[in-house]
Amino acid sequence: MTGQHDSSASAGPEHGHGHGHGHGHGHELEGKRGIKGLVSKVGHALAPHSHDSADKTDAALEGSSRGLRVLAVSFGVLLVTAAVQAVIVVMSGSVALLGDTLHNVADALTAVPLAIAFSLGRRAATRRFTYGYGRAEDLAGIAIVLIIAASAGLAGYEAITRLFDPRDMRAVGWVAAAAVVGFLGNEWVARYRIGVGRQIGSAALVADGLHARTDGFTSLAVLIGAGGAALGFPLADPIVGLLITVAICFVLRDAAREIYHRLMDAVDPALVDEAEAILGGVEGVERVGSVRLRWIGHALHAEVDILVSHHLSLVDAHAVAVAAEHRLIHDLPKLRAATVHTDPHGPAGADHHAPLTSHR
């Protein structure tokens, strides 16, 4: 027995899976004796795994479907919001409201790259893209961050321009009403996108929700500017616009950090702690080695090392790996696939990876 074994689980038709077990089983590492026990163990080791096309893939696909629904609904809400504002732009001649209207249209259009990303993420893995197309969400997230940055730049430019060239505003009450409509529409979309994005684990959808929130702030700037114009203080609009630009920059920072963490394979350390605790509770695991987690789209993948007794047979070590994998897939939220590597724990002083020392 070499003491090393990989047990890979991929819940999806795009990945092969080299072992299996049903849901209503138990692994007895010791105590099964005779031909019946040996046949049972070997049969278990060779059986196809029940997770190949089960819950986790269904959950990931449902996450993509929910993401597409969110984008479709929010796209419609923002277009209606922009249409209402456009009518009032014609009535009032407000340049600030025109900018806010165009901003809302741009925000609605950010749904396009995200929709493409969610659609791509549903495609099966290939021999070139062996992990599938989930990373398309991160690329869409980069596009959204760039759009937020452009929004901040445009808002700042318009505010500075209006600071040096104040303009009169007609139909101030209607402009204020349009600003309220813009804020409410964007805030509703922001809450919807951010809420579902966090539920399905999509950093790009969360970033898009944050972008919608920046547009809501811009609408509030129009409202306060309209109030200032009504009170005979036209400079209120550009001054508040500058403050809103600063607020947008803070939102930009949060969105950029979210996408950066995904691109760098960062995860919440609490997830690592949870995975270690799950593995440590598996019968036969004497120690937990390294735990590596990464997001691919809105699905979590794991690669873990566990140490088992060096007295175990290959079949028994495999059974421990299967049990560990099974527990991880069921107990770690949003985990779609796990690769479990077993190492022998002992004998004292043995180096089971000596041939690999020069390669590490």
Results as ranks from 00 to 15, higher is better:
Val180Asp: 04
Gly3Lys: 10
Ala255Glu: 00
Pro333Thr: 02
Val39Ser: 08
Val267Ala: 00
Asp351Trp: 08
Ala177Trp: 12
Thr161Leu: 10
His21Tyr: 07
Ile142Thr: 02
Val304Asn: 05
Gly225Cys: 10
Ala256Val: 00
His318Ile: 05
Val145Ser: 01
Val189Ile: 09
Ser53Tyr: 11
Val315Asn: 05
Ala177Met: 14
Arg128Phe: 12
Ala350Ile: 08
Val181His: 06
His353Phe: 13
Gly132Met: 01
Gly182His: 04
Thr130Val: 14
Gly43Thr: 11
Ser290Gln: 12
Ala190Cys: 12
Gly12Asp: 02
Gly280Thr: 03
His326Phe: 08
Arg257Ser: 07
Gly195Ile: 00
Leu312Tyr: 13
Phe118Leu: 06
Trp174Arg: 03
Val285Lys: 04
Thr2Met: 08
Arg162Phe: 00
Arg257Ala: 10
Ala178Asn: 07
Val89Asp: 09
His301Lys: 09
Arg287Leu: 03
Gly121Leu: 05
Gly76Met: 09
Val222Ser: 07
Gly209Ser: 07
Arg336Gln: 15
Ala136Lys: 01
Ile329Ser: 04
Tyr192Leu: 14
Ala324Tyr: 04
Gly3Arg: 08
Val304Ile: 10
Arg128Leu: 11
Val285Gly: 02
Ala221Met: 06
Gly197Met: 06
Leu242Lys: 01
Leu356Thr: 11
Val272Gly: 00
Gly134Asn: 02
Ala59Phe: 02
Asp265Arg: 08
Gly209Gln: 04
Ala86Asp: 02
Ile278Arg: 00
Gly228Thr: 08
Arg336Pro: 00
Arg127Ile: 06
Gly201Gln: 01
Ala150Ile: 08
Ala229Ser: 12
Ala317Val: 05
Lys36Gln: 13
Ala152Cys: 09
Val180Ala: 15
Val80Trp: 06
Ala82Ser: 13
Ala176Leu: 14
Ala117Tyr: 01
Gly20Val: 06
Val84Lys: 00
Arg122Pro: 02
Leu242Glu: 07
His352Cys: 04
Ser313His: 11
Glu30Ser: 15
Ala111Gly: 15
Gln4His: 15
Pro355Gly: 09
His44Met: 12
Ala83Gly: 12
Ala171Leu: 08
Ala106Ser: 13
Leu97Phe: 11
Val95Ile: 12
Gly185Ala: 09
Leu46Asp: 04
Leu114Met: 09
Ala11Lys: 00
Arg336His: 12
Leu356Ser: 12
Arg198Thr: 05
Glu286Gly: 15
Ala317His: 02
Gly24Trp: 11
Ala124Lys: 14
Ala149Arg: 01
Arg128Thr: 13
His44Phe: 10
Ser8Ile: 13
Leu68Tyr: 07
His15Phe: 15
Ala72Gly: 10
Arg122Gly: 05
Ala159Glu: 05
His330Tyr: 05
Ala125Phe: 01
His49Thr: 12
Ser92Asn: 10
Gly182Gln: 03
Glu276Arg: 15
Arg191Val: 07
Leu163Lys: 09
Gly209Val: 06
Ala106Val: 11
